[in-house]
Design a protein around this nucleic acid. Sequence first.
DNA 1: CTGAAAGCGCTAACAA
DNA 2: TTGTTAGCGCTTTCAG
Lengths: 335, 335
Amino acid sequence: MTTIKEVARRAGVSIRTVSRVLNEHPHVAAATRERVLSVIEELDFRPSAAARYMRTGQSQLIGFLTDEVAQNAFSYEVIVGAQQAAWENGKLLFLLNTGNDPQVEVRAINVMRDHQVEGIIYATMYHREIKHSQFPADIPTILVNCFADDRSLPSIVPDEIGGGRLATETLLRHGHRRIGFVNVAAQEPAPLGRLEGYRQALASYGIPFDEDLVRYVEEPFEGLATSTYDCVLSLLQMSDPPTGIFCFNDMMALGAYDAVRKSNLRIPEDVAIVGFDNVEILAAQIHPPLTTIELPYFEMGQLAIRMLLGEVEMVRDGRPVQHVMECPLIVRKSV
Amino acid sequence: MTTIKEVARRAGVSIRTVSRVLNEHPHVAAATRERVLSVIEELDFRPSAAARYMRTGQSQLIGFLTDEVAQNAFSYEVIVGAQQAAWENGKLLFLLNTGNDPQVEVRAINVMRDHQVEGIIYATMYHREIKHSQFPADIPTILVNCFADDRSLPSIVPDEIGGGRLATETLLRHGHRRIGFVNVAAQEPAPLGRLEGYRQALASYGIPFDEDLVRYVEEPFEGLATSTYDCVLSLLQMSDPPTGIFCFNDMMALGAYDAVRKSNLRIPEDVAIVGFDNVEILAAQIHPPLTTIELPYFEMGQLAIRMLLGEVEMVRDGRPVQHVMECPLIVRKSV
DNA sequence: CTGAAAGCGCTAACAA
DNA sequence: TTGTTAGCGCTTTCAG
């Protein structure tokens, strides 16, 4: 490997001078600078990041830990956002997918420490609560799409309530008064929050909450759309059926579409549908294109880096901040 | 930060002894070992990866460069596969998404060099040819889902022809003799290869190639499914319409489904459909679930690492190897 | 079985 | 404006 020493020798200067040029210090004669630069070019020399770190203590590295984000067809956007923001600030991302294995998680954090990462971002696939205790106290850590049981770590989460409210209001604004909600059966922030938003929107329009219009689909993933199909079918067969349906996510909206078609109804003329997540590959391609709420994953990843860099506050009034991200409406043609 | 020196001091031994324990050298008295280990534990000491690299020259780092893979709803699996294989071998992945900007690409490669990565994996979103010249000759590089113009770099690509053949044969095996193919209009390995596979399968069954059964949809992404809808509709209105349709990808199959339904036909009873890509979120959720060909992204990422580690050959007969990955059939219910 | 000391490539305090 | 040199935390050669 080419070293600074070799460059110095060839340029006929000391390594200190090369170092100065490298770090753009002032007080280097222009001619010397040029000479050194040309040798660097000629040798295609690049200073070793490791050696540099040894002296400066700045690794320029950020650890990006996930449970299974990278295995998810949409939340991977959080990685793209973080990577881009990191890159723009001269930082590099270590990607570590733990597959939700606690042992791997512990080892992963240790590996991050070995490499002296300047910060850790921990992102989860689903919005949920996690144990904070696993993270080292001496490395700034940001939680994305999750939050610590004891709120001891700053976090970035989507505004589920606001999203649920927006989805419902969209239907309301289009004149719908009987609005069904196909939710998933889990005590998690997403289903709980979106339901709360649904109730709030209804309330703000003075519409009483009708339990019968809210249906629950069991996890898991497999056959989610099919279960939704059944729910929506039965919703549509009510004596006073809904004319608008809010689906917990886009995949489920797929099942809702089938049910509406099966009932010989049209979207959006007879039944309007709103989804959640904005999975482009689905929402933009189905017919008619799905109006949905976007989970701002890209922005969440970006914000995490900016917090780590100190551009956005991590602590306020002595308490770790929780940034609640707005989930915008993506208007297509299903409402 | 805790250093090896501090550990040595506390354990009352020399640095050398701590280093021996750290590296599991033999010739350390059990008692000494225990003592050192307990101090390490107590101090929660972890040796610095950078310092270690300085001496050993082994960075244990692998650079993972992509054009826009991480922005793609399905090919990100290649990252997961690589990350997992790397992790199992004690390597760490640097993720760098260039967004297809050549300038960023050059800088990214330089950054990889700065960090002395032991290898580079370059993965593209679409199967295509790339210029090889941008890669440093002194770092082992593997191309994934792409190949070098001059074949000077080892690569891993999916078997488009085999996949196209398999898709078509699946239809053939179910008795279909009039088989439509909705392809995309581009001179790229994927559309070209899949078409070739389609022809081969037909030929092997002694069925003449009918140009009229092959339709082309214009890129781009937007409205792909809608364009497919039109194609399939016209296919179905032929005097001698196909009873089986092979779609270039799953998203397009979505449009095909709509067209079949619109024609009051059933899947698979009246018209069978095969997709390509196996985008789970689509294929497993639509009704009926889509039979499709899988692009083995996970395995491709995994293989890239194994090649870099020397477990799989990169060169044969003095020429860089191109691994052509089989694309398996995923049987669901649309055939 | 253990220790002293050199040195990896770089930056920076100090000197010239 | 430039050079000398110490030292970052670790591994390793060579002695003991």
